[in-house]
């Protein structure tokens, strides 16, 4: 065939695969619904783990030990103690909060009742000076606390919230492994659904395939419409799943903000930030699982 002639190959295979989907509507719809179910679980777990990890991160960033210093400690003692803390490799950040600063922060947090504290300003300020110490790894906060207690002539008391941090960490690890496991299981299920769907449509076009082969169609030519069909099914499922996930997510956030859980609102990742990631990953996932499932399903049929 001279190369300047436009081949009818591409338009005709796209036409064929679209025809095939509409011909086998029922089977295709069943596959789409099942993949949507799989993707919904996948998506909810993505959202859940992203939120949990955001929560953990927030907790980690806000986690610190607050070392209250004794009344009457000299500037030199303070500086020496600062150096001791700064030399500890576990420590990432040290902030000094003077008693004046502490009073100011406290009174700010009281908003309209801040007047109540006015008489404590100046010499009568009962609040101590303190160091607020953060660690690279929140698990090290406990040993920083222990370090501080080794200097009882400087340190009055160390405030440290232990249980809250470690339980979030272990909970998020647990969710992480559960979601990876579920994603794997769901992928296997979705893969076999596509595989079976395409095998059924291949079987329903058995006669057509034998005609194509006897006329001299190449295996790729016979295979491509089925692979496209699988890819389309994956894509349709991906888009519908993203739509459903958006609806669910907005609904849940709406519900939460109307309830007394509202304080959690700031910890929830906003949908705009996460939908794009979900959209891209669902599309890739749908296309991959659809095309690979279909390719394997047809390959077996095309021997001879």
């Amino acid at each position: 065939m001279p190369s300047h002639e436009r081949s009818s190959y591409l338009p005709s295979i796209i036409r064929e695969s679209l025809r095939s989907i509409s011909r086998n509507k029922l089977i295709a719809v069943a596959a789409i619904l099942s993949i949507i179910a799989a993707l919904l679980i996948l998506g909810l777990f993505i959202i859940f783990s992203v939120n949990i990890s955001q929560l953990t991160e927030m907790a980690e960033n806000n986690s610190d030990v607050k070392i209250f210093l004794k009344e009457g400690v000299t500037q030199e003692q303070k500086d020496n103690f600062y150096d001791i803390l700064a030399e500890d490799p576990q420590v990432s950040e040290i902030t000094y909060e003077s008693k004046e600063q502490a009073l100011e922060n406290f009174s700010e947090s009281l908003n309209e009742y801040s007047e109540l504290l006015s008489e404590y300003a100046g010499q009568d300020n009962p609040l101590p000076d303190s160091y607020i110490v953060k660690a690279h790894n929140i698990d090290d906060l406990a040993s920083i606390r222990d370090l501080a207690y080794e200097y009882p002539d400087v340190v009055e008391y160390v405030r440290y919230q232990e249980s809250y941090i470690s339980s979030i960490t272990s909970f998020s690890n647990f969710i992480y492994y559960i979601s990876i496991g579920l994603v794997v299981v769901m992928s296997i299920i979705a893969f076999f659904l596509i595989y079976n769907t395409i095998r059924l449509t291949v079987a329903s076009r058995d006669k057509e395939i034998s005609v194509m082969k006897s006329i001299g169609a190449t295996n790729q030519y016979i295979q491509i419409p089925f692979v496209l069909e699988g890819t389309f099914i994956g894509l349709i499922s991906a888009f519908l799943s993203v739509l459903l996930i958006c609806l669910v997510y907005y609904y849940v956030i709406g519900y939460l903000s109307g309830s007394f859980f509202f304080t959690l609102g700031s910890a929830i990742v906003s949908p705009e930030n996460i939908i794009f990631v979900i959209l891209i990953s669902f599309i890739l996932y749908g296309m991959l699982i659809g095309s690979i499932g279909a390719a394997l399903a047809t390959r077996k049929y095309l021997e001879v």
């Binding site: 081949s7 009818s8 006329i215 001299g216 169609a217």
Partner: peptide, 24 residues
């Protein structure tokens, strides 16, 4: 072994389509 969902014309044209002959 004709394809029942294609017309006479389409059945014959099909043999040219699948080996990539141009529509013209």
């Amino acid at each position: 072994r004709l394809l029942e969902n294609k017309t006479v014309y389409e059945n014959v044209a099909y043999a040219m389509e699948i080996i990539g002959r141009p529509q013209s």
